[in-house]
Design a protein around this nucleic acid. Structure first.
Length: 158
DNA sequence: GCCAACGTTGGC
DNA sequence: GCCAACGTTGGC
């Protein structure tokens, strides 16, 4: 059976909390700590083999820094049950977890960060919701044609 | 530090 | 079900 084209995503992380360097060192990670239903639902719809742009948020300047691949899905987020975690959710039940996530593997880091400012020059908010002012969604679907244009802007990866 | 853009919560 | 109050995200 021929493999399907991957879907593309953009996933935000504050580099102070978890950066592309951290992922490069660990090779793979579960994307835990998502506590927004829309973002969770997007993560639920990820398929193994999908690609995701790693976006550094809340830093100067924010932008796309690397590329990842989805290697596992439907993982219960363990932090929801950890009392000491900032992501602890007292309303989540062990036999009915509220939060789950995907596992991502490091594919590469781009030689140059593609900044939000540069992305704004190329895309409007209908093409890529990331550039909508006030956008807070931490996991964003990316249409294939938008992904190809991003790759053109990004150039080579290491 | 400010604030726009939401999502969530809870009273009614 | 409405909506005011509140909290969070994240650019600037």
């Amino acid at each position: 059976m021929a493999s399907k084209e991957p879907n593309y995503w953009l996933m935000k992380s504050e580099p102070d909390a978890y950066s592309i360097s951290d992922l490069r060192n660990e090779a793979e990670t579960i994307w835990d700590g998502i506590r927004n239903y829309q973002a969770r639902n997007f993560m639920r719809s990820m398929k193994i083999g999908d690609k995701a742009f790693f976006y550094h948020s809340n830093c100067k300047p924010p932008g796309i820094v690397g590329l990842m691949e989805v290697i596992e899905t439907k993982i219960t987020d363990p932090t929801q049950f950890e009392k000491s975690s900032k992501y602890f959710d007292p309303k989540s039940l062990k036999d009915k977890p509220r939060w789950d996530c995907a596992k991502l593997k490091y594919l590469g880091q781009f030689k140059e960060k593609l900044t939000l400012e540069e992305i704004r020059k190329e895309f409007n908010s209908d093409e890529l919701v990331l550039v909508r002012s006030g956008n807070r969604l931490s996991i964003i679907p990316v249409e294939a044609n938008v992904a190809y244009r991003l790759f053109n802007l990004l150039g080579d990866a290491n």
